[in-house]
Design a protein around this nucleic acid. Structure first.
Lengths: 257, 257
DNA sequence: CTTCTGTTAGTACTATTCTAACAACAGCAC
DNA sequence: GTGCTGTTGTTAGAATAGTACTAACAGAAG
């Protein structure tokens, strides 16, 4: 993480280029004048005043109206809280409208021979949750080798659906899943040790009611935080039926989806 | 909250203008093609493809590679989680560097006749916390009439400092403070009912060790979420001594700061 | 044959980056 | 006290980069 990355990240958080540089410089200076900031950065001195005023109005700087004006950043904790508060308020504004827009949509189109592609772990998690919530009879969930294949929210939801009468099977190839679902209605099926092991990049496989299937694939990149997972899913289609048969065949006699 | 506000908010969250409009349109459509989106918005049809691809890579859309291509938004919950995750990762990137920059600063300048101005409630809360944390002997905290003058974090900190041996007085003009500090070492001083009442826009008053003072003022605007509070504070200065005497005088015989 | 689709290129406009200039003030030498 | 130099804070404008939007086209679908 170098200074350019941090400046870029601050810009992503909504600061302008000059604001980001002024804020970062003042972290290092502690307290400083426009000239001090200009000397430490490539921000033109005449531009420091406007950038600093904007930061002050956003609650990120304290100002001493002396001659010359002195600036100091608020604490990093206060700055983080402040930016997070701004983010949450902005997101709430946007999503209140989006919820009303969503409610305005007409009757959903009938499902056709659709295969959908989703990028990103949180989006895939969301789709998995939705498919599981819609299950009426049976859910089969399998995960490939992974440090953390099963999100807490998803495992909670699997328990909940199992307790509400849906048949839930989790296919595991290590023992940790037993502990997670030990006291629930979820059935954990252990693959035999000699079962051919899917190598990465296989991610998750979910089959719902024998007619909906989701397959995710983990991109082979280094940074797990970058949501580098892609999934396809399909429901009540010919291709879904074929994929489900393929998944079924891959599991052999261990379990039927 | 209308559509333009939502579009603007989505732009603040990092979407481009076209991306925001495509995403909002698809909330209403449910599923749609580039032409469907173009018809519902003023986004040129040729620009919908690029905006949609970008949204997909950000994990906000699902795509069906048919002819024509079909797009659908991920669920609003998944979208919110996703944007929040992006925000938290970006903020962590920025603040890791800022913390190292902060640690690199030289010895803090000696305090001079400084008066600092702070905008925004979270920044003022942060400064109050810092002043209270630095207290060695005595903290006096007063708040004007307000729906929620005392942040949980601040009240927790006041308790903690009282329990660690600092003398903490909270000056209240209603009974609710008794409940908050009933079982702690914090002393709550009730102003007499006939005490002249500060009218808004007075916010908070904090005096630390008889030599540091913070005075906040609430701007008279409607929206409490807009952090419309401004504070001044000063430490070990002549003006701080004067302000503290003024505050002392304002409290009459009820308490000495 | 017409319309639609997806892609690419380019122009016009807006925003940002950066420089220049200036009045007023502060500091210093004499 | 005066004169000179440097600093401060403000404003304006040119250059550059990014965004908004239109136009055009090949290929496919109806």
């Amino acid at each position: 993480m170098d200074e350019d990355d941090a400046i870029e990240a601050l810009e992503t958080l909504g600061l302008s280029n000059y604001e980001a540089k002024v804020f970062a410089a003042l972290q290092e200076l502690g307290t400083g004048t426009a000239r001090d900031v200009h000397r430490l950065t490539d921000v033109p001195r005449s531009q420091v005043y406007g950038a600093a005023e904007s930061l002050q109005h956003r609650g990120l700087l304290e100002v001493q109206q002396s001659k010359p004006i002195q600036y100091r950043p608020v604490s990093l904790d206060a700055a983080e809280s402040h930016l997070r508060g701004e983010f949450e308020r902005t997101q709430r504004r946007a999503f209140e409208y989006l919820e009303t827009a969503r409610q305005r949509r007409g009757d959903a189109d009938e499902e056709r021979e659709d295969i959908w592609t989703v990028h990103g772990r949180t989006s895939i998690d969301g789709r998995i949750e939705q498919l599981v919530e819609e299950a009426e009879r049976r859910v089969v969930f399998a995960a490939g080798d992974d440090d953390e294949p099963l999100d807490d929210a998803i495992s909670d939801l699997l328990r909940e659906r199992a307790e509400s009468g849906v048949e839930v099977l989790v296919i595991a190839d290590d023992k940790s899943f037993d502990a997670r679902f030990a006291d629930s209605e979820v059935t954990v099926v252990q693959l035999p040790p000699d079962h051919p092991k899917d190598e990465p990049p296989v991610g998750r496989v979910v089959v719902v009611d024998g007619e909906t299937v989701l397959l995710s694939v983990r991109d082979e990149r280094d940074d797990p935080e970058l949501d580098d997972e892609t999934a396809i899913w399909s429901s009540r289609t010919g291709i879904a039926a074929v994929l489900i048969q393929l998944v079924d065949g891959g599991l052999g006699n261990a379990v039927s989806v």
